[in-house]
Design a protein around this nucleic acid. Structure first.
Lengths: 202, 202, 202, 202
DNA sequence: TATGAATGAGCCTTCATTCAT
DNA sequence: AATGAATGAAGGCTCATTCAT
C-alpha cells in the first residue's frame, strides 16, 4: 500500500506546496522590503518578485503588515541562528569568527537595509517595538556570552559590561555600514579590529 | 505724527513673510519626515503640521522631493555648524564637548530618524547619494581635525587614522541610538566614554 | 439533473466579464469625451457614466490617454465599417445612401463632437496625429472609390479629383454640423443635395 | 498751458496703460486658448504669454470665463470687420477676394483652432451658444449679401438660397482646414474654386 | 489555493481664485 | 493697477484589500 506516497516523491503534497509558496513569498518580501522600505514595497512588487499573483499573498497572510511581521520573526530567528553558529568555535578562533560575522553584515546590503527598516518601524509602532526589542536583546545577549567566553579563555578582563560591549560592537558595525555602501570594506574592518585590539590589551 | 509708519515694524514685509512660511514648512517637514519617513510623510501632513494649506508647499517648493532636498541641505549645514561650534573649545575640554555632542545626538529623536532616513534615501537614489555623502564626509573631517587637535594637546598617539576614528565615533553613536529610543542614556554614554578612554591610554 | 450546468450560460466567464467591462467603459468614454472634450472629461466622470469605480478604468487601461487612444481606434474602425456598409448598395441607390450617411453624421451629436475632439488632439499631439490622419485618409479613400463607382454607373464625369471630392463632402458635412446643433436638418441636407446635383450635371 | 499733455506724449495715461494691458492680455489669451483649448489654457500660461503676472488678469477680468467671453466678442467683431473689408471690392474682383479670405482661414492655424473652440463651447454652454450663434449668423449674412451682389453683377442665378450657400462656403473651408494642418494649401483651394465655378456656370 | 478584476481611500500635483502688499 | 503667496477643490493615478472564479 501507500503506493501513492511512493510514486509521487517528486510531487509535493498540499501542505508542502503551501509551505513552499509561503517561503517564496517571504523570501521575496525580504528583498523588496529591504530595497524599497515598508511604505515603498507594494503587494504587487512582492508577489511579482516571488513569481505569484497578488492574491497569493492574501491567501497566505492577513495583510501587508502581517507579512512584514512574519518576515521580521523569520529574519530574527535566522539571524540568531546564524550568529550562534558563527560563534560556535574554539575560543582562540572567536576573534576571527566574530570579525567574519561583522564583515558579513557590512557586505549584505539587503540585510543592513532590512534591519534599519525594522528599527525605524520599531520607533513608529509600539507593538512592533515590543517584540522587536526583545529579539534584539536576545541577540545581543548571545554575543555578550560569547565575548565573556572569549575574555575568560584569553585571560583578559572585560573592559566594560559585556552587554554594553556586545551592543557597541553591533552598533558600530551597523553604523558604519549605514554610512556608505560596501565599497571599501577595509575601513570598517580596520576600525573594528583596532577596537577589539584595544579592548583586549592586557 | 505718522505713528503708523513707526509702529509698523511688527508687520513683516512680503519677502519676510515668505521666508517665514518657508522656514515653518521646512521645520514641519523635518518633524514629519523624521517621524514617518519619506514615503510615509504626505504633503497634507507636512502642511498641516506647519499650519498651512497643501498649496503653500507648492508655492515654496517644486515637489515633494524638492522639499526633502531643501531640508537635507539645511539640516546638513546646521548640523555642521552645530558640530563646529560644539567643538570650538580649549583642548582640555574637548573630551567633554564631544561627549556632550554625542549625547545630544542620542537624545534628539527626530534628528536620529532624519539622518537614518537620509542614509536610506542615499542607498536608493544615486543622485541624492552623491550630494549626501559629500556632506557626510565634510562633517566627518571636521570631527577628525578636532580629534587630531585633541591628541596633539594631550600627547596621545592617534590609535588609528583620524578619519576612521571620527567615522567610527559617529557610527557607534548612530548605531546605539538606533538600537533603542533614548530611555536610559547611560549605556551609550558609558560605552563611548570607555572607548574614548581606551583611545587615550598612553 | 445538473440543471445548474445547463442554466449557467447566463453567467459570464471571467474573460467575458472583463470584455464587457472594457466595452462599457469605452462606450462611456465615448459619450464623456464627446460632451466634455479631452481635458474636460475626468476619470471620475467616465467611470461613473459606465457605472464602475474609478479604479476599474485603471484595471483596463494604462492611463487617461490610453483610454482615449483605444477609443479612437475603436471609433475609427466602426466608422469605416459603417461607411462601407452604408454605401454597399446598387449604383442607382448610391446617392440616397450617401445622403443618408451624411445626414446621420449631422444628427449624431456625440459623433460630431468626438471627431472634432480627435482633430483638435491631432493638432496638439504629433504622435496622435500620425495615426489619426492615416485612419482619416482610409475613410476618405473608401468614399472616393464609391463616388467613382457612382459616376461610372451614371455616366457622369468626375468633376474634380475623387479624393478631393470625398474630402470636400466630409468637410462640408462636418463644417455644417459644427455650425449649429441639429435643429433644422433641412438646411445641410438641402445644401449637400444641391452640391451633389451640381456635380452630376451632365 | 496743457504742458503736461505736451511733455509726456511718450508716457501713457492711466487709462491708456490699462487699455494696453487689457489688449495684451487678450492677444495672449487668443494664442493660448487656440493652442491649448479652453480647459488646457491656464491663467498662468496666459498671463506669462502676455508678460504679466497672474494677478493682472484678475485686475482686468472677472474670471477665466470672462476673459474667454471678452476674447470671443473681440474676435467675432474683428472677424466681421475683416470679412467686410476683404469683400469690399468691385464685383468682378469678388471671386478673387473671397478666395483670398477663405485661404487666409486655411492658413491661420490659431484662427481655425479658436473658431473650433468657440463652436465646441457653444455646444456645451447654452448661454455662450446664444451670443455666439448670433454673431455667426451676422457673419454669414454679410457673406450672403456679397454673394448676391456677385451673382447679380455676373448675371448668374443664385443656385441655392444665399444664406445656405454662404454657410456652405464657410463650412467647407472650416471642415477642410480641420482635416489637416496647412501643408498643401492646394487641395482646399482647388476644391473651393471648383465649387465656385460650378455655382456660376450659367 | 491562487488569480486578478474591481473597489475606494489616499497621494501628489495643478489651477482658478483671493487678498494683503 | 499689478504682484504673487496662499487657498482649497479637483484631477490623474497608486495601491491595499475584497471576492467571484
Amino acid at each position: 500500500m501507500e503506493t501513492k506516497a511512493q510514486t509521487r516523491p517528486q510531487r509535493l503534497t498540499r501542505a508542502e506546496q503551501q509551505a513552499q509558496t509561503r517561503e517564496r513569498l517571504l523570501a521575496a518580501a525580504e528583498r523588496v522590503f529591504a530595497r524599497h522600505g515598508y511604505e515603498g514595497a507594494s503587494i504587487d512588487l512582492i508577489s511579482a518578485e516571488a513569481g505569484y499573483s497578488k492574491g497569493a499573498i492574501y491567501s497566505n497572510f492577513e495583510s501587508k503588515e502581517a507579512i512584514f511581521l512574519a518576515l521580521t520573526g523569520l529574519y530574527m530567528a535566522r539571524s540568531m541562528a546564524d550568529l550562534e553558529k558563527a560563534l560556535d568555535v574554539a575560543p582562540d578562533q572567536l576573534a576571527d569568527a566574530l570579525n567574519q560575522w561583522l564583515t558579513n553584515f557590512q557586505t549584505d546590503n539587503d540585510c543592513l537595509l532590512l534591519v534599519t527598516e525594522l528599527q525605524l518601524q520599531a520607533r513608529r509602532n509600539p507593538t512592533f517595538a515590543a517584540s522587536y526589542y526583545r529579539l534584539q536583546e536576545e541577540q545581543t545577549r548571545t554575543l555578550a556570552n560569547n565575548l565573556k567566553r572569549y575574555c575568560k579563555a584569553s585571560g583578559t578582563a572585560m573592559p566594560v559590561n559585556a552587554m554594553d560591549l556586545a551592543g557597541a560592537l553591533i552598533a558600530i558595525t551597523h553604523g558604519l555600514a549605514l554610512q556608505r555602501p560596501q565599497s571599501d570594506i577595509g575601513t570598517p574592518g580596520r576600525v573594528i579590529r583596532a577596537m577589539m585590539k584595544l579592548l583586549t590589551r592586557p
